[in-house]
Design a protein around this nucleic acid. Sequence first.
DNA 1: CGTTATTATATGAAAAGGAATATTTTATGG
DNA 2: CCATAAAATATTCCTTTTCATATAATAACG
Lengths: 145, 145
Amino acid sequence: MSGSGRFVDGYLLYLLARASSVASAEFHQQVRAQGVSISVWRILASLKGTDQGLTVGELARSCLANQPAISKTVDKLVDQGLLERHADTEDRRRVWVRLTPAGEQRVDSLIARAMDHQARLLDALGPENADILKAALTQLIDRAP
Amino acid sequence: MSGSGRFVDGYLLYLLARASSVASAEFHQQVRAQGVSISVWRILASLKGTDQGLTVGELARSCLANQPAISKTVDKLVDQGLLERHADTEDRRRVWVRLTPAGEQRVDSLIARAMDHQARLLDALGPENADILKAALTQLIDRAP
DNA sequence: CGTTATTATATGAAAAGGAATATTTTATGG
DNA sequence: CCATAAAATATTCCTTTTCATATAATAACG
C-alpha cells in the first residue's frame, strides 16, 4: 500500500470547505470582474429581499463575517451610495442597514448572474442530486453541534 | 404575503458556505484556543499523510488559499521549526514543504481533536445522512463548472 | 542553440480582516 | 431610582491576505 493516505482527504470539514470553494470559484471570479469583492457581494445579497434591511449584527451573521469587518465595509458602501444606515427608534443601540435604489440596482445585476450560474450548476449536478444535496446541507446546518 | 423573501435563503452557494461555516465553527474555536490559526491548521493538516510533503503550489490549492499567503505562512512555520523546505532536485523552481518531527507532533494532537469532533458531528447527523452528504459533496466537486 | 514563453516561488505595498476594547444604550437587581 | 451588568456598534491596533510584480528556472519554438 501507499495510496494517498492524506488525512484531509477523508475529513468531512475539508470536503465541505472544498465543495463550497470549488462550486463558488467560477461565480466569484465573475463578481470580482465586476469590481465587487466577495464580502461586498455577500452584504448586498444578504440585504436583497429584506424590507426594512438588517441590523449590523444580523448582517454580520448572515455574511458569516465578524461584526467589526461589517461595520467597516458598510461605511464604505454608504460612502458609495449603495447602502444607508438608520438608527432604530426603539433601541438606539441598533443600527439598520438597507439598500439604496443604487444598491438595489447593483445587486440586481449581480443576482441575475448568480441565478444564471446557479442554473448551470444545478444542471451539471442533475435536479435529483441537487435536491439531495440541499436537504443534506440543511440537516447539517440544523444539527451541527 | 411577506415571508422571508430573501434572495440568499434559496441560493445554493450560500447554503454551502453556511453549512461549511456552521459545521466548522466549534472545531475552529478549539483550534484557535490551541493558539493555532485556521490557515496554519490547514497547512499542517494538508501535509499530514504525504510522504515527501507538498510543493508550495500544491499546498496553496489544498488549503484553498493563494500562493503568496502560503509562502509567507510557511516562512513562519519554518522559523517555528514545524516545517522544512527543500528544493526539488529535478526542477529547481519547485520547493517542497514537509512536516518536521515537531510539526508532526503538533498536527497529530490537532488531528486527534478533529477526529473527535468529526465523530460527534457524524453522530449528530446520523451515519446514513453523513454518507449521503459525502456522496453529494463529492459529486459537486467533480462536476462543478 | 538562442530567444521567447511559460511556470513556480518570493517579495513588497496596499487592502482587508481579526482581537481587544471603547462607547453608547438598554436591562437587571438591590 | 441607582448601580451594575449586558448588549450593539464603532474604533484602534496589529496581523494576514491580496494584487501586482520580481526573480529564477524550465519549456517551446524558430
